[in-house]
Amino acid sequence: MSENNKINNVPVHDLRREYKNTVLRRSGLSSCPLDLFKDWLKDACDAGLSDPAAMCVATVDSSGQPFQRIVLLKYYDKEGLVFFTHFNSRKAQHLKKNRNTSLLFPWYMLDRQVIFLGQAEPISTQESREYFQSRPKESQIAAWASPQSEIIATREVLENRFLEFKQKFQEGEVPLPHFWGGFRVRFHSVEFWQGGLHRLHDRFIYQKKENEWTIDRLSP
């Protein structure tokens, strides 16, 4: 790269550190990836990481252009991982046409990351309603107020919509919007990455074969 094309105010090429928190060995792996994921998620919570349930959700539009955004995981089990969104949002529209997605948990403060691959499907209205009713009332109102991913002229437009719906739902419960709900990602692949000394990272991938999980070590 020529000197004229370099941006020298932030020397990113010198940003380097050694990963030496811990190691990941096959002997420490369980037969089900969710067992290790549960332990790592607890470690992230116990370490006081900000938003330990935050994950990067990747989708692809009809032209093949990838998109990514941070979304909060709300609950999970052997059936899949669940998050919630506006059904007119960009990610929901992508998933309507292409269910394939990737979920990345970037716990870099612990030198760890986890990647789930799978297919997303809408959960039932009743399941969405149960979660929606557990949210703080202001968050429920915000779901009504925000036409997610649409262009708006100013922030005041959004704030005014919030105030309008806050007044509308001042008394009683806030109903579940018909355009809002959850997706469950049914995963078939889970990769665990643990940073290692001298860039000799530990990577293990779980892949579902029928009703069994195979485990392989990947070169870093």
Rank of each mutant, 00 (worst) to 15 (best):
N88E: 15
R184D: 02
I70Q: 07
P106I: 06
L34T: 09
D14V: 06
F67A: 14
Q167C: 09
G182I: 02
H94C: 08
L200E: 11
D77V: 10
Q68V: 10
M55E: 11
P220K: 05
R25A: 15
H188K: 13
Q119K: 11
Q119Y: 04
V114S: 02
S27Q: 13
N21L: 14
P106F: 03
N88Y: 10
N4L: 13
H86S: 15
K209C: 12
R17F: 14
G182R: 01
T59W: 07
R69C: 03
K6E: 09
F105E: 01
R186P: 10
E173D: 15
W193H: 10
T101P: 06
I115Q: 12
H178M: 05
N9I: 14
E138I: 04
S134A: 13
V57Q: 06
I205A: 12
K38F: 07
N98W: 02
F165A: 02
S102M: 08
R129P: 00
R135I: 03
Y206H: 02
L218A: 04
D39R: 14
V114K: 02
F132W: 05
D216I: 10
L176R: 03
V71E: 08
L158C: 01
R161I: 00
P33Y: 07
H188V: 09
R203H: 01
L110I: 03
G28A: 04
W107S: 04
D77M: 04
G195L: 08
F84P: 06
G181D: 03
R161D: 00
E3C: 04
R17W: 14
E130K: 14
P106D: 03
G118N: 04
H178D: 09
N211C: 04
